[in-house]
Design a protein around this nucleic acid. Structure first.
Length: 520
RNA sequence: GCCGCGUUGGUCAAGGGGUUAAGACGCCUCCCUUUCACGGAGGAAUCACGGGUUCGAAUCCCGUACGUGGUACCA
């Protein structure tokens, strides 16, 4: 994997410089599709360029702390095979990687901005802010912002006298630090997937940078940490685009403009109506999170792709091509192939609607292309979860090979492979009854007797005996195969009947047929 | 409301001035198989709309509509 010539020609400045990207989730709950795709694109980009992928935990909102959420994120990444090079658990030279543990570092930057006139102290209480919003609310402006117009009317270091501000500060009055957005500037930048984007700064509000509890908000933290962690390319969801001008300005005001990362705002993944939510999953019956997640507060379980029976390879593959393609017709990629061909510039700028049917197709394809050995553990587990013990290794391997192309999701193996290990509990007799008659009953009674005498039990001897007897009785073999299948597997599915008979053995074959016959 | 981003079949999408507008999923028909799958052969779109620019526009420009995101001391 090496950089293409394009890097020189299109001034990416990627060659020769070490690429560092980051995924920065806030540990507030399950990791959904969009999150995993963001991780994936970060990871692919980094690995394509031989760079590092760091995972940073953005836990600056203490009120939203959810126990277990951070560990859950790590487990998801591990399942997906997207291991960070640096993180709170993997360590690294730029730690700590949890923002709550970096708390003390942020204040100095915020203060520096105040000193240089790019930010200011604001003493407004929650109530005062609410009152402001109420007061200035009009039909044309339903949600007034704390912006260049409003700030003149609020209690901050721009409106208060210096000694008053000083007194307030010295008496530890709760306050925040807000950025002072310029009134008439235009901020623009080149997004790696959208091209030139620009904003009028006067239309953006004075975002809080440092909260009253001393924690930074996302806006300050993301800039400071990306700088401190030497992030070269910053990818995040499209929902961040509107606050990008704040971040751009912060890089400039802090004097770090020359090391600002290149941005790419990823398109959203949409559900049946609007942004995909876990609610959609519950409503339409598909998973939205990578793995099962139980919200500890309300004890509510949200289903994961893993538990639904997806292979991580398929999950990753499906996500990669939801919004990206390499320009060829290729759709099936291993992680290594993705790393080799990924190009952030070929990511679509439009949001993509998630299609569960297509997701299943990817799993089916991966089931077909993966070898038996690598499927064995998962299949055994899913069978065990359904009370089927498959401890004979060689047998299990043979069966997986035989039935895997009939399965879409892992749990399908229960139906497709279960009957090899355990006689069916219910027989779909309705499928044979309409055409059942004494002749057929007679056939099977005699056939059972023949089978009992077969010396070498294999597919062909079972089949030969079957056909010979059918011929002798002048019954079309085809009319007898379905009944036999129902007797052995219980339903209209599975591989060739005689193959099944061979595998389950003489005793079981005879036993199942006799039992079924007794019901007919 | 304001701001940003987006708009090629039901879905994912290629294509970025001249093409019979690829391919995949799903759907339907047929073949293979007297199970179910797999596999194979077919079927279904005037590229949101309206104006330009041009000999020529899905492709470039401008509007409109629609969708979506933001507008928090949440990320």
């Amino acid at each position: 994997m090496f950089c293409c010539f394009g890097c020189w020609l299109f001034r990416d400045y990627i060659c020769g410089m070490s690429v560092r990207v980051r995924f920065a989730p806030s540990p507030t709950g399950g990791l959904h599709l969009g999150g995993v795709r963001t991780v994936l694109y970060n990871y692919l980009f980094a690995k394509h360029h031989g760079g590092e992928f760091v995972l940073r935990i953005e836990d600056t909102d203490q009120t939203r702390f959810v126990p277990g959420a951070e560990e859950y994120i790590f487990n998801c990444l591990e399942w997906c095979g997207l291991t960070p090079d640096e993180s709170p658990v993997h360590g690294g030279p730029y730690g700590p990687y949890r923002q709550s543990e970096r708390k003390e570092m942020y204040r100095q930057y915020a203060e520096k901005l105040v000193t240089n006139g790019y930010a200011y102290y604001a003493f407004d209480t929650k109530e005062e802010l609410e009152q402001m919003r109420e007061q200035y609310k009009t039909e044309e402006n339903p949600s007034p912002q704390y912006d260049h117009r409003i700030r003149r009317k609020m209690r901050n270091s721009l409106t208060l006298a210096d000694d008053e501000v000083k007194a307030l500060l010295e008496s530890n009055t709760p306050h925040v630090i807000r950025i002072k957005m310029p009134e008439h500037d235009v901020v623009s930048f080149t997004d790696m997937i959208r091209g030139e984007v620009s904003f009028q700064t006067g239309l953006v509000d004075d975002k809080v940078l440092l909260k009253a509890d001393g924690m930074p908000t996302y806006h300050l933290a993301v800039v400071a940490d990306d700088y401190l962690m030497k992030i070269t390319h910053a990818f995040r969801g499209e929902e961040w685009l509107p606050s990008a001008p704040v971040h751009l300005l912060l890089w400039k005001y802090l004097g770090w403009e020359s090391s600002m990362p290149q941005w790419a705002h990823l398109p959203l993944i949409l559900g049946p109506n609007g942004k995909l939510s876990k609610r959609d999953g519950a409503k339409y019956g598909f998973p939205v999170f990578a793995m099962n997640w139980t919200d500890p507060k309300i004890n509510e379980l949200t289903e994961g792709f893993r538990e639904r029976g997806f292979l991580p390879e398929a999950f990753i593959n499906m996500l990669a091509v939801l919004g990206w393609n390499d320009g060829t017709e290729k759709e099936l990629y291993s992680l290594d192939e993705l790393i080799a061909s990924f190009d952030i510039k070929r990511v679509h700028s439009a949001g993509a609607k998630f299609d569960f049917e297509k997701a299943k197709w990817f799993n089916q394809e991966w089931l077909k292309r993966k070898d038996v050995q690598s499927l064995k553990y998962d299949v055994r587990t899913v069978l065990a979860n359904n009370g089927i013990v498959a401890d004979d290794d060689a047998l299990l391997e043979k069966i997986i090979e035989l039935v895997k192309e009939r399965c879409t999701l892992l749990p399908d193996f229960v139906q497709q492979a279960g009957f090899f290990f355990k006689a069916p509990e219910t027989l779909e007799l309705d499928a044979v009854k309409p055409k059942w008659n004494d002749e057929k009953k007679q056939f099977f009674t005699e056939y059972i007797d023949v089978l009992k005498t077969v010396s070498t039990w294999d597919m062909s001897s079972v089949e030969t005996a079957f056909k010979e007897l059918a011929a002798a009785k002048s019954i079309k073999p085809g009319e007898l195969q379905l009944p036999m299948r129902i007797m052995l597997v219980g339903g209209k599915f599975g591989p060739a009947v005689f193959q099944i008979a061979e595998i389950i053995g003489k005793d079981d074959t005879v036993k199942r047929m006799e039992y079924a016959l007794s019901l007919l």
